[in-house]
Design a protein around this nucleic acid. Structure first.
Length: 501
RNA sequence: GCGGGCAUAGUGUAGUCUGGUUAUCACAUAGGCUUGCCAAGCCUAUAACCCGGGUUCAAAUCCCGGUGCCCGCACCA
């Protein structure tokens, strides 16, 4: 489906809508409705089960969303983000000020005020790199972080975190003790991050407030052993940076062991890349042919990232491959910055006496983007029907309960719905309209099972009744004793976990 | 931010160029009749001109501003 059509469907069904919609919305902010909130929560839970399940030394924390100014100064977010932008009044293209000035002022623009930059642009004859015009605008600095007054005096400033990763780095020294002083140590955060994007677009793909699921794995750079045999034979759809530089974006299926043996990547990296790939393919059910692992080149990736593959999915609604997650090998950059920022040595002493500043492997993904991708990939027309073919454990509603004839079977159906709910299943009761319409609504919501209570159920009595169970994807029906329902539905809606040693 | 395009019930739309009836139609939603395991049928009801200003006897229609969305550029540390 096209983006507009998909978004309209998601709004209509109450999956999501613009924040403050009755005031015309707010750019880059969206609210999730019942289906969207439940789906996103299941995505987050599946992510946590999968990635934190990779090791018994990986932990989930829930840190504050506000960061003191000193933190974002140390992390580099404060300075990196004041890069001023200059627009050409002639051809209307925008450039970073240091791009415009690289010929006339090779030393860069760090530390200059916008007024000083404007002066240099005017007096040194800077030209637009595109059309050569010297009609350049006054530089504008844009701040990608939201600053917030803090404390009663209002003189202190804090910032809404621009990435959840910082929270994990700050937690490392405390977690070093909590985790009983061993590496590798994983710290996972699922939480909101905030960026004042210049141009929020594509609904859930460029938001100003969004959720990140990130696992930061702190490890000893000299020794990070992983059960590589578990992933050795997995074939990954990679696009290597070297081939991209040579002009080919074609996906190349490469066995994991080859990425290590001849591909120049460390085992620990490929191991986690495979698990990230499997999360999207096996847990979220993305078709393998729609996924690719795109390696970022030296030029593209942030300077502190030593290795970076983006996990991308080919989405019809957005016209091509879009980033949903990534695996970043960040080296010791982050702990190094915070060591400098605090003046405290954040390196740790391992058993045996060796002292190291841990390196970080970051596994990251975006639940909001994932929700959109799940709609793009799994929600669509199936003949006459609109069906959301979600993996059953992600479906907001596990089981719908219908009375075949509301007047005759309503009470028994309500009692059954209660019972299933009490057992811990996400259950939804619907007696409105014809049975066909209820099936259709359930299909659109992605509910994997519909249970219909009929005359037979009532006649058989409350403890030995049977009901019709209808499967979302095949529309097939089967007669099932009510006593078997809970077990059957639980088995079918269990989220996968990685197989460990 | 820049340039271009767009904005009518919950959804999709007609009407806008060329100002003038009670703003069209379908689907959806709610109620009723009927039916009783896959969006059936009939009847009824609810429901919209993005916001603000201007021009005019009269604005969904023309003009200005705002907001939002789409495409391209830039940005995405």
């Amino acid at each position: 489906m096209k983006s507009d059509e998909l978004y309209a469907l998601l709004r209509r069904r109450g999956v999501l809508w613009p924040t403050a919609e009755i005031y015309g919305g707010a750019q880059g902010l969206y609210d999730y409705g019942p289906l969207g909130a439940a789906l996103k929560r299941r995505v987050e839970e599946a992510w946590t089960a999968w990635f934190v399940g990779l090791s018994h030394d990986y932990y989930v924390i829930d840190p504050a969303e506000l960061l003191p100014e000193a933190v974002v100064r140390a992390s580099g977010h404060l300075e990196n983000f004041t890069d001023p932008e200059v627009t050409c009044e002639n051809c209307h293209k925008a450039f970073r000020a240091d791009t415009i000035l690289e010929k006339v002022r090779p030393e860069g623009v760090d530390g200059l005020t916008p007024a000083e930059i404007a002066e240099i642009v005017r007096t040194r004859g800077a030209k637009c790199p595109n059309c050569g015009s010297s009609a350049l605008s006054v530089p504008r600095a844009f701040n990608m972080m939201f600053g917030v007054d803090f404390g009663v005096t209002g003189r202190e400033r804090v910032f809404l975190r621009p990435e959840t990763a910082q929270s994990s780095y700050l937690a490392f020294p405390r977690m070093w003790d909590v985790g009983r002083r061993a590496l590798p140590l994983g710290i996972a955060v699922v939480g909101k991050a905030y960026r004042n994007e210049i141009a929020p677009r594509q609904v859930l793909f460029r938001m100003r407030a969004f959720t990140q699921s990130e696992l930061q794995i702190f490890f000893d750079p000299e020794r990070f052993s992983v059960p590589f045999d578990r992933v050795r034979e997995e074939t990954l759809p990679v696009v290597r940076a070297a081939r991209r530089e040579a002009g080919s974006e074609a996906v190349e299926p490469v066995p994991a062991e080859d990425l290590v043996r001849s591909g120049g990547l460390p085992e620990f990296y490929v191991y986690h890349l495979v698990h990230s790939y499997r999360f999207f393919r096996d847990v979220l059910g993305f078709p393998a042919g729609r996924l690719r692992l795109l390696e970022k080149s030296d030029r593209e990736r942030a300077f502190y990232n030593r290795i970076q593959f983006d996990i991308e999915a080919d989405l019809e609604s957005l016209g091509g491959f879009k980033e949903l997650g990534a695996v970043h090998y960040r080296g010791d950059y982050d702990l190094g910055r915070h060591s400098a920022g605090t003046g405290k040595d954040l390196s740790v002493t391992l058993t045996g006496g060796r002292t190291v500043l841990p390196h970080v492997l970051e596994l990251t993904s975006g639940p909001d983007r994932t929700v959109w991708a799940l709609a793009d990939l799994h929600l669509g027309r199936d003949g006459e029907r609109t069906v959301w073919h979600l993996p059953p454990y992600l479906a907001p509603v596990a089981v719908e309960v219908f009375p075949l004839i509301p007047k005759a079977h309503g009470a028994a159906a309500l009692a059954l719905a209660d019972e299933l709910g009490a057992a811990g299943l996400a259950v939804h009761y619907d007696d409105a309209g014809t049975i066909g319409k209820r099936y259709a609504r359930a299909d659109e919501a992605g509910s994997p099972f519909c249970v219909t209570v009929d005359g037979e159920t009532v006649a058989e009595g409350p403890n030995h009744g049977t009901v019709t169970v209808r499967d979302r994807d095949s529309k097939a029906q089967s007669r099932v004793p009510t006593g078997d329902l809970v077990g059957r539905i639980f088995r079918a809606t269990r989220s996968p976990r990685p197989a460990l040693a």
